[in-house]
Design a binder for these strands. Structure first.
Lengths: 173, 173
DNA sequence: ACGCATGTAGAACGATCCCTCTACCTACGC
DNA sequence: GCGTAGGTAGAGGGATCGTTCTACATGCGT
């Protein structure tokens, strides 16, 4: 059932987020997914598919967490996005972006790199739309990526810095 | 003749940069290092030590590439740092920061995380000094990390964005 | 000429890897 | 009552893993 699939994907996401993409064995993943090995392989016929399933699930949850129910006003929306991302880092991704971690573990995998690019493009596109900055996806990607990567080093001070940089972005041509 | 240790470290760095930290076997690393298995284990007694040796070598080369012979004037120095990092990405690190890749492959390894933090702290400190922005290490880390992570997605457009953000940083209180 | 440090080549070990397979259980529509 | 779908438990194969070890070659100071 689809219910089983999402439960498996949620468990896989948790396992990869906690232990990285290299370390967990398929048996570890089976334990995290809470199903038998056979069922796990039925829904994700190889370890690579398990990675994809985890990332798909992660993408859904991330987009919902960051972009759902944003304020209408553009400045407030961008500030809220920064706060949501900082909140996400605090409670979910204290080690950094899961997509980058997946690509780092297998940098030759073109499919994974494409998945990363699509995820980041969608984030930038939603951020540009919510903040009323169409065409500024590169600027927004830079600040969001900087926030995401710096947060493990400097915590909430990074969020404050990102908010000020976003104000500067909106004032820039 | 170059020191055996540095030759090994250079080969290891190249292997990990090309194939990530999870994929290469010790035999692959031996081939990349260009020495025998016994010699490799003499200088790096475990695979983890090989990772450390590669990262140490990477740190030396990165700092030299980005911070050597910068202009005296603060604005020009910061612009040069951005250009140097973009140049580094173009020719050396098209997949992203090697330290983040190492941590992503083994997020539970506290020693690796400490190595990452020290590397980033040293980069931020040197950047703050060169650009005449003491105490602004968090801001600089955010822009530099954003540039480093976004570059694989948007290439030199990211560098242009980073330069404008650096100008904004210097104009901010 | 000789000892020693330093190197190469590669076999072998036990562990672990991903994946497949057999055998059995349970819920449910007809 | 019974077949089928979809599940569990777990053994095992074949390959590869990190690491150690033996056996041999080479350069160099004395």
């Amino acid at each position: 059932m689809t219910d089983t699939m999402t439960r498996i994907a949620a468990g896989l996401e948790r396992a990869f987020a906690a232990n990285g993409f290299a370390e967990p064995s398929v048996e570890d993943l089976r334990d995290a997914a809470g199903v038998s090995l056979r069922t796990l392989y039925k829904y994700a016929p190889s370890r690579d598919e398990m990675v994809r399933a985890a990332l798909d699930h992660r993408h859904q949850r991330y987009m919902a967490h960051v972009f759902a129910d944003l304020p209408q006003e553009h400045g407030a929306a961008l500030g809220a996005i920064v706060d949501r991302i900082a909140d996400w880092m605090a409670r979910e991704a204290s080690h950094g972006c899961l997509f980058h971690a997946a690509v780092a573990a297998a940098p030759r995998d073109a499919g994974l790199r494409a998945l990363l690019a699509r995820h980041k493009a969608e984030v930038a596109e939603r951020a540009a739309r919510a903040s009323g900055l169409p065409g500024r996806e590169v600027d927004l990607t830079l600040v969001i990526e900087g926030l995401t990567q710096s947060w493990p080093l400097h915590g909430d001070a990074t969020a404050a810095s990102a908010r000020r940089l976003c104000d500067a972005l909106r004032a820039m041509p």
